[in-house]
Amino acid sequence: MLNGFLALLLCQLLGEWVVLATSIPVPGPVVGMVILLVWLIFKKRMPDSVRGVSEGLLRYLALLYVPAGVGLMLHLHTISLYWLPILISLFVSTFITMVVTVLILKVMNKKLNKNGAR
């Protein structure tokens, strides 16, 4: 379990370093998740230690919404000034996510049908 936690933290640290070195406008933990994804793709399997730690963290994911909710209440006045751009960006990003998901599912479905899987 400690090895899995160390792997997750190392990926996050590498992501922070990449962001600092390149000044890209993406949070370090997001870059760390991409690094973890690439590592898992090359490894071609999920190590049990990483799986255990990930499942343990996912159990408590709902607790991470509490600080976000407090932030919303703290900055309610600022949000009320920009409610229309926020609403538009939420709808546009949700729509784009849905379209990309459908396109990926279509491509994957074609590949599965081509390989003879059902």
Rank of each mutant, 00 (worst) to 15 (best):
Leu87Gly: 14
Leu103Phe: 15
Leu64Asn: 04
Leu2Val: 04
Met46Asn: 01
Val30Phe: 14
Leu13Met: 04
Arg118Cys: 09
Gly116Leu: 15
Ala117Leu: 15
Leu112Tyr: 13
Asn113Thr: 15
Ile41His: 01
Met1Phe: 15
Lys111Thr: 08
Val53Gly: 00
Lys110Arg: 15
Leu58Val: 01
Ile104Met: 13
Gly28Phe: 04
Leu90Met: 13
Leu90Ile: 09
Leu2Ser: 11
Val26Gln: 03
Asn109Met: 12
Ile79Arg: 05
Gly116Gln: 07
Leu87Glu: 12
Met108Gln: 13
Leu10Ile: 09
Leu103Gly: 01
Thr101Trp: 10
His77Tyr: 12
Val100Glu: 12
Tyr82Thr: 11
Phe42His: 06
Pro27Tyr: 07
Leu36Gly: 07
Asn109Trp: 07
Phe5Gln: 00
Val31Gln: 00
Leu72Ser: 02
Val100Met: 04
Leu61Arg: 06
Leu61Glu: 11
Ile79His: 09
Leu57Gly: 10
Asn3Pro: 07
Met33Ile: 10
Val100Arg: 03
Leu112Met: 14
Leu2Asp: 12
Val18Thr: 07
Met73Pro: 02
Ser89Lys: 08
Met33Gln: 10
Met108Cys: 08
His75Tyr: 15
Phe91Cys: 05
Trp39Leu: 04
Tyr65Cys: 01
Ile96Glu: 07
Gly32Arg: 01
Gly116Met: 12
Gly56Val: 00
Leu36Gln: 06
Leu61Gly: 04
Leu8Ala: 08
Ile24Ser: 01
Lys114Pro: 05
Ile96Val: 15
Ser54Met: 08
Ala62Tyr: 13
Pro47Trp: 10
Leu20Ile: 03
Ile35Thr: 02
Lys43Pro: 07
Val26Asn: 06
Leu63Cys: 09
Val26Arg: 01
Met1Asn: 04
Gly71Phe: 08
Gly71Lys: 03
Ile79Gln: 05
Tyr60Ser: 05
Phe91Asn: 04
Arg51Glu: 15
Pro25Leu: 07
Ala117Cys: 05
Val102Cys: 04
Leu2Arg: 05
Met33Tyr: 09
Leu40Ile: 00
Met108Trp: 08
Gly15Cys: 11
Leu58Phe: 03
Ile35Met: 05
Trp17Ala: 13
Val66Ala: 09
Gly116Trp: 13
Val30Pro: 03
Ile35Tyr: 10
Thr101Gly: 08
Ser80Gly: 01
Ser49Trp: 01
Leu72Tyr: 13
Gly28Pro: 08
Arg118Asn: 14
Trp83Thr: 08
Val102His: 06
Pro27Glu: 03
Leu6Trp: 14
Lys111Trp: 15
Ile104Leu: 09
Val70Asp: 00
Val38Leu: 11
Leu20Tyr: 10
Leu13Ile: 08
Met1Ser: 11
Pro47Met: 11
Leu105Tyr: 06
Val19His: 02
Leu8Met: 13
Pro47Arg: 00
Met46Thr: 07
Ile35Ser: 09
Ala21His: 01
Leu84Arg: 05
Asn113Arg: 14
Lys43Gly: 01
Val18Pro: 00
Leu58Gln: 06
Ser93Phe: 11
Ile88Arg: 09
Lys106Asn: 09
Gly15Thr: 00
Ile35Trp: 03
Leu36Pro: 04
Cys11Leu: 02
Ile86Thr: 12
Leu6Glu: 05
Gly4Gln: 01
Leu37Asp: 11
Asn113Cys: 10
Thr78Leu: 14
Leu64Thr: 10
Val70Phe: 12
Leu8Gln: 02
Leu103Tyr: 15
His77Ile: 14
Asp48Thr: 02
Ile41Arg: 10
Ala117His: 10
Leu81Tyr: 06
Leu40Thr: 03
